[in-house]
Design a protein around this nucleic acid. Sequence first.
DNA 1: TTCGTCATGTAATGGGTTACATGATTAC
DNA 2: GTAATCATGTAACCCATTACATGACGAA
Lengths: 215, 215
Amino acid sequence: MVIYRTDISSQHDRRLHHMKQPGMLELPVLGLLKERAMHGYELRKQLGAMLGPFWQVSWGSLYPTLRRLAKAGAVEKLADEKPARRSAKSSTTISAGRRKTVYRITPRGEAMFTEMLEETAAVVDAEHFTLKLAFFRYLKPETRLALLERRRAYLQEKLAQFKTNLRDYRERIDSYTLSLQNHSMAATQSDIEWIDQLIREERSIEGGAPNPTNA
Amino acid sequence: MVIYRTDISSQHDRRLHHMKQPGMLELPVLGLLKERAMHGYELRKQLGAMLGPFWQVSWGSLYPTLRRLAKAGAVEKLADEKPARRSAKSSTTISAGRRKTVYRITPRGEAMFTEMLEETAAVVDAEHFTLKLAFFRYLKPETRLALLERRRAYLQEKLAQFKTNLRDYRERIDSYTLSLQNHSMAATQSDIEWIDQLIREERSIEGGAPNPTNA
DNA sequence: TTCGTCATGTAATGGGTTACATGATTAC
DNA sequence: GTAATCATGTAACCCATTACATGACGAA
């Protein structure tokens, strides 16, 4: 129910490895599979470990994502054959193997991952931004800075909107709603400061020594 | 893609004015119409004024909500007849009236509103909680406290999960992800403190003087 | 007369949630 | 031997998003 402006700068729209509007999970799934092949169950655990307790992915969300990625040629399913470590109790060897489907990323998937990660439009959405940030190590410092600054500008814009909003309507809203908006504003402000910190860190590792500090 | 536990205490499930899993907008729309009848366009503006710039409701979300509410008998559509204030320039009076559909809440809608507002399960979701808080003035202090405390418990639980999560995986996550989780934790902590403040205020206006402070 | 805002919707599409269904391993 | 966890999906339903379509009204 929340709208985010996606209209800003709809330039560079031709993507090589198309996938119109991927779901939320495509990026982190590819990002995790980039490190090593995994099966769905573990993917879910790693997602939680990486993103924290607010990101509990459901099966009905994860597996369809994997299916979509497989259809797009971004991942391939491997049968993790580790059959009958003990003795087979029944005589029928049929259906003995085939459990644990391992998903492995393909070169195509790697390309899609990079493309999704670099795209700057989606950072206005908090969750998309979070997901990108979780894989920032795969980006060049300049791209990281671009994403951070875009996110910052968005938050700043929202902050300004909060202020004009309160200026226009303050007398008409009750104390609970006011408290709500004040808390939201404070949270947004805190987000901005966090982003600023990230930008500062990025600059310090990027520039090295832009100012004359004894070369 | 985020899962919230709804399993906790599935007691008192029989709702009088059923509407299985209403969308997000049902509550605030009814809440605003409770104050006065409005048409869709204004509803959207009020929603934004009340909830802040992160809540920009789209038409494709608002009108279907109104349609659903109308079908459920919670609101009724009135034709806001304010035709031809000036002289009618064309001779055909046909199609002169009928613009601005005003929506008015029904007694049934009022009942649904109260029911949705009092329901405690949904407060685990941040957005649902926000929407309830925006209409807290319609609740009894004790119900307000119950909702606040439930929300607080949920956040506290998440905070604990953050900690065990970091304890178990800290060495495996990179600096960006760590920064992400730390910021999330801080935000959650800040949310808890905010809730605590609300609880304190609630108690002070509720109790009056529980401690001997010169009666 | 043209632009911006007011104003009301519909249609397609797609992803997420919930619930369902099933079975193998491991730990106690 | 039984409970918990591991493990893999499917199916239905529904809401939100996005884009589309249309038109009146007021001001410049």
